[in-house]
């Protein structure tokens, strides 16, 4: 049996989870830059991606500080391999189409906004400061992704079909955001972060309201794909994403400008 986690190791893992979620989703969303269906949406997605990457700098910056091995946010983003990433599987699944991209954004934004609301009251003031800063941006992301999900869900027959298919595909990835483990237990005990399971009721209420307005049906299944936030088993998609995101540091180690 492995040695129990120290408080510092647990905090490091928690910060990686926050920063890897925003990093991987930010990268995924940035893949739309120059490819969106209309210019306004292209700009909106690029701006959302930019916010997420900016938030990553704070979360992974603090993670590096807590780890104490002189690693910067860039080191953690570009020099770790798949098994060291701690993002939920939801954020690494491919964009597929615009509908799935926006549905994934909505399902994540809803969790993210609730999580940050709790983190603003964190006993660790560094965590609370990042949460206070980023929650404003995330409230804006949620407003937009919820509006778009309603607009497309309750839109034409074709757009409705895309959004329902997106929800059906992504639903099994929602459960992982609410699974608790020993890292979460340590964070909850220290008053640093809430127990993920405790956020589920607020989440279900929020997405239930929006998805009903969008005339979409939440699948009747509690099955959850897991393994991202504890690093046990990522999807095959993350490795492909990293080959794109990290290629420069892989090809030219230590390159900077």
């Amino acid at each position: 049996m492995a040695a129990p986690l120290t408080d510092n190791e647990a905090l490091f893992q928690f910060l990686l989870r926050m920063g890897d979620n925003t990093l991987i989703l930010g990268h995924r969303v940035s893949e739309w830059c120059g490819h969106s269906p209309v210019l306004e949406e292209d700009i909106a997605l690029a701006n959302t991606a930019l916010d997420l990457i900016g938030q990553t700098q704070m979360w992974l910056g603090l993670a590096g500080e807590v780890q104490g091995e002189e690693k910067s946010a860039d080191d953690l983003a570009f020099l770790r391999d798949v098994w060291d990433f701690r993002n939920v599987l939801l954020v690494e699944v491919p964009n597929e189409d615009f509908g799935r991209t926006l549905m994934r954004q909505f399902l994540f934004d809803a969790w993210h906004s609730i999580q940050l609301g709790h983190l603003m009251k964190s006993s660790d003031e560094r965590v609370a400061a990042i949460a206070a800063k980023t929650s404003k941006e995330v409230a804006y992301h949620l407003e937009r992704s919820a509006d778009t999900v309603v607009g497309l869900g309750d839109g034409t027959e074709e757009s409705h079909g895309y959004m329902q298919a997106a929800l059906d595909y992504l639903w099994p990835y929602v459960g992982e955001m609410f699974v608790s483990d020993e890292v979460d237990a340590a964070m909850a005990k220290a008053g640093i972060a809430p127990d993920p399971a405790s956020l589920r009721a607020d989440y279900d209420a929020l997405i239930g309201r929006v998805l009903a307005e969008a005339t979409l049906n939440i699948p009747d299944s509690g099955f959850a794909h897991k393994g991202g936030r504890n690093g046990k088993m990522h999807t095959e998609h993350l490795g492909h994403l990293l080959t794109q995101m990290q290629w420069l540091q892989r090809a030219y180690p230590g390159a900077s400008w």
């Binding site: 306004e40 700009i43 959302t48 930019l50 916010d51 937009r144």
Partner: peptide
């Protein structure tokens, strides 16, 4: 409103 986002992160269109 045309878009919730605009030419820079601080602006909408």
């Amino acid at each position: 409103r045309v878009s919730q986002f605009g030419s820079t992160p601080c602006k909408a269109h």
